[in-house]
């Protein structure tokens, strides 16, 4: 068993220990587990169809039959909130996935090769950082056309620079380590060194950043959907449901309350887990607020 494997097992044990010790992190993990179950099995678990219009039951307040009430078309809000969980998870995972693949690759090359490549790539990242996150996402979706796919691409693009920066910072310190120089001296190729020696050793900050970025990606998707630029009707999305419900806010509070509460709980859960992971894996990493500031 290699030293690296032992180290990783140790980290996993520490993460599990912290989750057991920290009630907030444990609650966050449980909320995320429920979210995944609802997201994957929403269509089977939802009490009604998401587009089952019932004009006899328009704007009904929460009751046993409809725990989250009904909307202006008599549709069951609980079912729509449950099905929309899948959209949020999907957008979060795909957009952060795009940001990780592109950002980590760019950060690896920039940090490993340094020189002009590092300069060019990092100045490009600085340019993307010069735009407020939501504004750039809105602009990208506006030109590509609204929809789930473009929203995921746009959010992926705006979160790429943070991954590039975190990766590059990690690579800069790891590339000076003895084991990297040893790998160079035995003739290992650059790609092999990056994949086998550098990447595993900068995984901790990347895992933390992923958890925090998932939270912000879900918030960004909700904002885009609220603006009508994300998921298109009649498919449900939490942000879109909030937008549609705002016109009825004074007469049907449940239309605004439940979808917003779902976004809040999801983002909170990712943040709590992200904070706990940071404490274990990378105490020097940014706090949630700093991460948000740096991506704002």
């Amino acid at each position: 068993m290699s030293a690296q494997t032992v180290n990783r097992e140790g980290q996993l044990r520490r993460v599990l220990a912290v989750l057991r010790r920290d009630p907030l992190a444990l609650t966050g993990s449980l909320v995320l587990a429920v979210l995944v179950v609802v997201g994957v099995g929403g269509s089977w678990l939802a009490p009604s169809g998401i587009n089952e219009v019932n004009v006899d039951q328009m704007l009904e307040p929460p009751s046993w039959a409809h725990p989250f009430g009904t909307d202006e078309l008599g549709r069951d809000v609980l079912s729509r909130v449950m099905i929309a969980a899948r959209v949020s998870l999907q957008v979060g995972l795909v957009s952060v996935g795009i940001a990780i693949v592109v950002g980590v690759t760019l950060g690896l090359f920039a940090g490993y090769y340094r020189g002009w490549l590092d300069n060019v790539l990092m100045r490009c990242m600085d340019v993307l950082f010069a735009f407020p996150v939501l504004l750039l996402a809105v602009a990208i979706v506006a030109v590509l056309g609204p929809g789930l796919t473009t929203a995921m691409v746009a959010i992926g693009v705006v979160y790429t620079p943070i991954f590039a920066r975190v990766t590059r910072a990690g690579v800069l310190s790891v590339r000076e380590q003895v084991f990297v120089r040893a790998a160079v001296s035995v003739g290992a190729s650059d790609l092999r060194i990056m994949r086998r020696h550098v990447l595993p050793n900068i995984a901790a900050p990347l895992i933390v950043q992923t958890s925090l970025s998932l939270a912000f990606a879900i918030l960004s998707e909700a904002a885009l959907s609220f603006l009508g630029l994300g998921v298109q009707p009649p498919d449900p999305a939490w942000g879109r449901m909030l937008f549609d419900g705002r016109g009825f806010v004074t007469e049907a509070w449940w239309l605004g309350f439940f979808p917003g509460a779902a976004i809040f709980l999801t983002v909170l859960a990712f943040n709590l887990v992200g904070d706990a992971l940071r404490d274990v894996l990378d105490p020097r990493q940014l706090t949630v607020s700093e991460a948000r500031r740096s991506t704002a």
Binding site: A223, G239, R246, W253, A261, I263, V288, S289
Partner: peptide, 23 residues
């Protein structure tokens, strides 16, 4: 409070604010 603030969607808080302070 700070954990709440970084997790809550501001537009949701706005809608709830309209409901409470205006409605």
């Amino acid at each position: 409070f700070s954990q709440f603030g970084v997790s809550v969607p501001d537009f949701w808080m706005g809608i709830m604010g309209i409901l409470l302070f205006s409605g």
